[in-house]
Design a protein around this nucleic acid. Structure first.
Lengths: 205, 205
DNA sequence: AATAATAACTAATAGCCGTTAGTATAACCC
DNA sequence: GGGTTATACTAACGGCTATTAGTTATTATT
């Protein structure tokens, strides 16, 4: 009679947890199913009772991550694009990447390798950011010059957020501080928001 | 009687070229010596006539890349840190990363895996950026607030430059343009310089 | 011309990889 | 309680990995 309050994680969930961390750290092909199984505490053939094969495991990991991260984007799209709501959206995704850096790492691995996983990730994560007519308050931002530059700018800010977590080990050693501490999170949040504010405030040379 | 003008690349150089591309694309452990040898057009055991083992090959690749990329940094350190010279330095490293994206990719792989290569790369590439007393014109930049935030800001701008090339495949598919074309380079250069200018111009809320 | 060194090759190694097959044990259903 | 299902296990496979040993052909040195 299993009757716990929040229910202990199932084996499948524990496999997903382990695989997510390992894929994010080493990438797809450098992650071995033996490593995954070791973390869970089972033998690697037992994984096949839960997932068809390595590729299916990767897809399941991806599915779970994307479900978490595309929610704020849909939130932003559901109303007018004001400065305040962009700030909110930015803060939300920064906090979410801090809470779980694995999606950013997975995306970075995929981008580096340019393999078959890349296209799917583009379509499901990045493409939604580039909906036409998503001007900010109907007004273009001076820094970015002509409108043709704007997609680059969106990517730039996204990269700013993501590269913080993909570069986290570098930050740790360089600055001698845990980059995922609450203090470090506030620092990065202030920096990014200040940068965005400077961009909005700037009106030409 | 081989008597060519610029001298054809030696086998060792061709191995380094192939290995550099592959390490940058797939990372250390996902790159096989068989792949490297295939690109050069020889069998994998022949690699051992030129490099002691896989690790030594990686180190040699790294050495050649770092020699290219630390020159501009030493240039900047050799004189007063003015706005103009920071802009110059930024433009130089942006152009250098465009000309050869492989160091950025290698760094990103190392940061993601956090393996033994990470520390060496930090010391040789990033640490020089954080020399004490490198204030800009003796004046702090308002956006970054207190001086304690400044290392974060330096990393942020570096990440902005590097993530462009590590995310290049994403840019290619999203924007439908070669991210390493001359036009794209100018775009990114303008964006980054504009961002830096906005940061300098910004003086509080 | 004889010798030494360079750099390619083939063959073979031990180990790890993803995956399949077959088996045992425990929990559920009727 | 018998049968079914779920999930763990061990054993084994073919393929790929880095690496070593031994061989051969070409080049440079004396």
């Amino acid at each position: 009679m299993t009757n716990q309050a929040v229910s202990a994680p199932t084996t499948s969930e524990r496999i997903l947890d382990a695989a997510e961390d390992l894929f994010a750290e080493k990438g797809y092909s450098a992650t071995s199913l033996g490593d995954v199984a070791d973390r869970v505490g089972i033998r690697s053939p037992s994984l096949y009772n839960h997932f068809k094969n390595k590729e299916a495991l990767y897809q399941a990991v991806l599915e779970r991550l994307l479900a978490d991260f595309t929610a704020p984007q849909r939130e932003l799209d559901s109303g007018p694009v004001t400065y305040e709501r962009v700030f909110e959206w930015l803060e939300t995704i920064v906090r979410r990447h801090h809470a779980n850096p694995n999606l950013a790492r997975l995306l970075q691995h995929a981008a580096l390798s340019g393999g078959p996983h890349t296209n799917e990730l583009i379509d499901r994560f990045f493409r939604p950011m580039f909906q036409p007519g998503a001007r900010i308050d109907g007004q273009e931002v001076t820094v970015f010059g002509d409108a043709g530059l704007q997609p680059w700018a969106v990517m730039a800010f996204n990269n700013l957020v993501m590269s913080y977590v993909t570069m986290a080990p570098m930050y740790r050693d360089l600055l001698g501080q845990d980059p995922f501490s609450e203090a470090a999170l506030e620092n990065q949040l202030n920096l990014i928001k200040s940068l965005l504010r400077a961009v909005f405030a700037y009106r030409g040379e």
